[in-house]
Simulated assay, not measured.
Amino acid sequence: MTSADTLRNIEELQQRCEQYDGISLKLNWDMLRQPSAAGNTEWLVTYEDELLVGFLGLYGFGSEMEICGMVRPGYRRRGIFTSLWNRAQSIIKRGQVTTLLLNTPAASASGTAFLAKLPLTFNHAEYQMKWNGNSSPSLSADASSAGGEVVLRPAIQEDTPTLIQLDSQGFDMTEEAAAEVYKLHKDEGMQEHIIIELSGQTAGKMRLYTEDNETWIYGLTVFPKLRGLGIGRSALLQTIEREQQNYNGVNLEVSLDNPNALKLYESCGFVIVNKQDYYRYTG
C-alpha cells in the first residue's frame, strides 16, 4: 500500500470518527502531507481485514512533539489505541523530545477517557474558529491602519531570517526552534508564506494553507513595536476578501490564554466551532 493510499484511508477514518462523535479532530494535514523525508511527522496505523481502524500521528516541532489519534467506532475498547501508544514510545525517545503534548477535542468522550489513564497535566486549550460572513464587518478597501497602508505579498527566500525572527518574537520561542518549524513548511505546494508590509516595510507575517476549498491561517504575528495599529486586522480582512473571491472558507486557531487575539478574530467575523484540549505528558 502506498503512502497516498494510507493518507486517503486516514482521511476516511477521520470523517467517520467526526460524524459518529460529533467532533472535529486536529490531524495537522499540512504536516501529514509533507514528504516523509522531512522526518518531523510520522504516523502509526492499525488495519483489520484491510480496513484502517486506528491511527496515531506524531508531529515534531523542534524538541516539542504533539500527538493525536483516533480509533474507528465499533473497534474501540479493544486496546487498539493503547497498542499504538506503546509503539510510539520508540519514536518519542528517538526524537529526544523534551515536551510531549497530547491533544483531543474537548467534546470527545473516548479521547478524554483514554488520556485520563496517563500521567498528564493540563497544558492549554485552543479554539478553532471559522469566518462567518453573516456576522462580518465590511471588507471593502480595508488596506490601511493607523500607521499607513498595509500590503500583503508572497514571501521570498530572502525573507527567511525575518520569518524566523517574527515567529521567535511572536510565539515565545528561540530562533533555532522557529527555524526548525519553518523548515517543516518550506516546500509544500498547498500553502503560502505571506509577508505583511506597512508603508513598504516588513511588519508581520502569516502562513496560509488551502485544501478542499478551506483556507487555514497560521502563525499570524506582527512585530511587537507595531502592534495596536490595526495591521493584523487589515491583514485578516484582506485575506478574507481574497479567499471569498476564490470561494474558500477561512479558518484559524487561537489559544484561550490569548484574549486579545480572540477579540480581534471575533471582531473580524470569526466564530468558535470547536475546542481542542492539550495535555503535557509527565511520565
Rank of each mutant, 00 (worst) to 15 (best):
D49A: 13
D49H: 12
D49V: 10
E50H: 13
E50I: 07
E50W: 03
E50S: 15
E50Y: 05
L51G: 07
L52A: 04
L52P: 04
V53H: 01
V53E: 06
V53S: 03
G54T: 04
G54N: 03
G54F: 02
F55W: 13
F55R: 06
F55D: 06
L56C: 08
G57A: 14
G57R: 13
L58M: 12
G60K: 15
F61V: 08
F61N: 06
G62T: 08
G62Y: 04
G62K: 02
S63I: 13
S63G: 10
E64A: 14
E64C: 10
E64P: 09
E66H: 11
E66Q: 07
I67Q: 03
C68K: 00
C68W: 01
C68E: 09
G69M: 02
G69T: 01
M70I: 07
V71M: 00
V71T: 07
R72E: 08
R72K: 11
P73H: 01
P73S: 01
G74W: 00
Y75T: 02
Y75V: 01
R76K: 01
R76H: 00
R77T: 04
R77A: 07
R77N: 11
R78S: 03
G79K: 00
G79T: 00
G79M: 00
I80G: 02
F81Y: 10
F81I: 10
F81R: 07
T82P: 04
T82H: 12
T82N: 14
T82M: 07
S83Y: 12
S83H: 15
N86S: 15
R87L: 14
R87M: 12
R87C: 10
A88G: 10
A88Y: 04
Q89L: 04
Q89R: 05
S90P: 08
I91Y: 15
I92E: 02
K93I: 08
K93Y: 06
K93F: 06
K93R: 14
R94C: 09
R94N: 12
R94Y: 04
R94H: 12
R94V: 09
R94E: 11
G95E: 07
G95R: 15
G95M: 08
Q96S: 10
V97I: 15
V97L: 05
V97E: 02
T98G: 08
T99C: 04
L100T: 05
L100P: 09
L101M: 02
L102F: 05
T104E: 09
P105H: 00
P105E: 02
A106N: 11
A107I: 11
S108V: 06
S108L: 06
S108E: 11
S110F: 06
S110I: 09
S110E: 12
S110N: 12
G111H: 02
G111V: 03
G111D: 05
G111S: 02
T112Q: 14
T112A: 09
A113E: 12
A113Y: 06
A113R: 15
F114M: 13
F114P: 14
K117C: 04
K117P: 02
K117Y: 03
L118D: 05
L118K: 11
L120N: 10
L120D: 08
T121M: 12
T121K: 14
F122D: 09
F122G: 09
H124T: 14
H124S: 12
H124D: 11
A125D: 09
A125R: 07
E126K: 14
E126I: 06
E126T: 09
E126Y: 11
Q128I: 15
